[in-house]
């Protein structure tokens, strides 16, 4: 076995061993933050395929466990729009809720239409832990939802 191959195997072994332990809290938080940032940077952070719409969440307060959090949701056409507009009003009912993954508890914040294609979600109350933040479009029996995961720590 060549020296180069041995070196590669040792490096792979080291990476496998160090990645098997419990993930550090800080690196987990960084991972969730990165995931959030990546999705927000993409051209279609939350895709509603059946409506042909993209959506984006922008926090206007928080996310925090120490105060009420709030965010806006904007919608645009997947074909010819972008996160800067023009915004498109969904034909379906817009809703939002948050779910704590540990316990299955779901909290329903207040959703208010600001202007066509833009909604304000207020009165969002988190407790420390892992949460899924959902945006839902509902038209009769047709329901489409997308979510982002965030971790709020003590």
């Amino acid at each position: 076995m060549s020296l180069k191959l041995k070196t590669v195997l040792i490096v792979i072994g080291f990476l496998l061993i160090t990645s098997c332990g419990k993930e550090a809290e800080s690196s987990r938080l960084n991972r969730f933050q990165s995931q959030f940032a990546r999705r927000n940077q993409s051209t279609c952070p939350l895709k509603f395929a059946s409506s042909g719409l993209c959506s984006e969440m922008n926090w206007t307060s928080g996310p925090s466990v120490e105060k009420e959090s709030s965010f806006t949701i904007t919608f645009w056409s997947e074909k010819d729009g972008s996160s800067t507009g023009p915004w498109v009003e969904p034909s379906a009912q817009v809703g939002a809720f948050i779910r704590m993954t540990c316990c299955g508890s779901v909290f329903f914040p207040k959703v208010t239409k600001v202007e066509p294609g833009k909604y304000s979600v207020t009165n969002v109350k988190f407790t420390p832990g892992k949460w899924e933040v959902y945006v839902q479009l509902k038209s009769g029996d047709v329901v489409e939802k997308q979510f982002l995961t965030i971790q709020l720590d003590d």
Binding site: F97, R99, C103
Partner: peptide, 14 residues
Amino acid sequence: APVATEGLVSGQGE
């Protein structure tokens, strides 16, 4: 035992 959710959102707690 975990609390499962169905309907609005499906999932399993811990």
